[in-house]
Amino acid sequence: MVRLVMGSQDSIRYFPRKDLVETIHGLLTSGLTHALTMFAGRRMGKTLFVKQELLPAAETWRWRAYYIDLWVRRDNPELGLVEELEGFVEQKQTLKKPDKLLAKAGYGSTGIQAEWSGASNPEIDLQGRLKRAMRALVGQGNESVLLVVDEFQTLAAGKHEDFVSTFRATMQELQPQLKLFFTGSSRDALNSMFRKRKAPLFESAMPLPLPELGADFVEDRAVIFQEITGKSMDAAELGKVFNKIARVPMYLNQIVLHTMVSLTADPWEGFSLWRKALGDQGAHEQWVKLKPVDKVIVGHLASKQPISLFSAEFSAKVTKLLGEEKPYSPQRIQTAVNRMVKNMVLAPKGEAGEYEIEDRALEIYVAARMQGFLIN
Rank of each mutant, 00 (worst) to 15 (best):
K179I: 03
T110K: 11
V296N: 01
E237R: 15
I333A: 01
I24K: 10
E83A: 07
F242V: 11
L301S: 06
L252E: 07
S303N: 09
L213V: 13
R187H: 14
V50A: 12
P98Q: 06
Q226R: 15
L81P: 02
G299P: 01
Q281L: 13
G214I: 13
R43P: 14
R3N: 10
I12T: 11
L79A: 12
M171E: 11
E313K: 00
M193A: 11
K100Y: 01
L4A: 02
G270C: 04
H160T: 07
E324C: 05
V2L: 07
Q91P: 02
G26L: 11
M250C: 01
L309K: 00
T335L: 15
K159M: 01
I245L: 03
I364K: 06
E161I: 02
N142D: 14
R3A: 11
S308H: 00
E123S: 11
E115V: 02
L81R: 04
G87A: 05
S144F: 07
E351R: 13
L309C: 06
A169S: 15
A65N: 02
T259I: 02
A156E: 08
L55I: 15
T29I: 10
Q91N: 15
M134K: 06
E78V: 03
L321D: 03
E59D: 09
V82L: 06
W268L: 11
W116F: 15
W287Q: 05
E143T: 03
V89Y: 06
K320W: 05
G239M: 08
N76P: 03
K349P: 02
Q226T: 12
E90F: 04
M344A: 14
W63E: 05
A157H: 02
G141W: 03
E84D: 12
V298W: 01
K97V: 09
F163E: 07
E161H: 08
L55S: 07
L137T: 05
G184K: 09
P327W: 04
G279F: 03
I375Y: 01
R197M: 13
R135Q: 10
A265C: 05
P122I: 08
K198I: 14
E78S: 02
T33L: 13
D162W: 06
P98G: 07
G106P: 00
R13F: 03
F163Y: 10
L101S: 06
K317V: 00
P267S: 07
A347S: 12
F242Q: 13
A265K: 07
A236V: 13
L70P: 02
L85C: 03
R135G: 04
S329Q: 02
N121I: 10
G111N: 00
I375N: 04
N253C: 12
K179F: 02
G7D: 00
L79I: 08
G45P: 13
D125G: 09
T23P: 01
Q9W: 05
D294N: 08
M38S: 14
P200M: 14
S144I: 05
A352P: 00
D162I: 04
L210N: 12
L190E: 12
E115L: 03
A368I: 04
E151R: 01
R221M: 15
S192T: 12
Q127L: 10
S144A: 13
P306I: 04
T37V: 14
I245K: 06
I124L: 14
K276H: 08
L70N: 00
F310W: 06
P292L: 05
V82D: 03
R132F: 06
V2T: 08
L81Y: 01
A114N: 00
G108A: 00
A336V: 07
K244S: 13
D69N: 15
W63P: 05
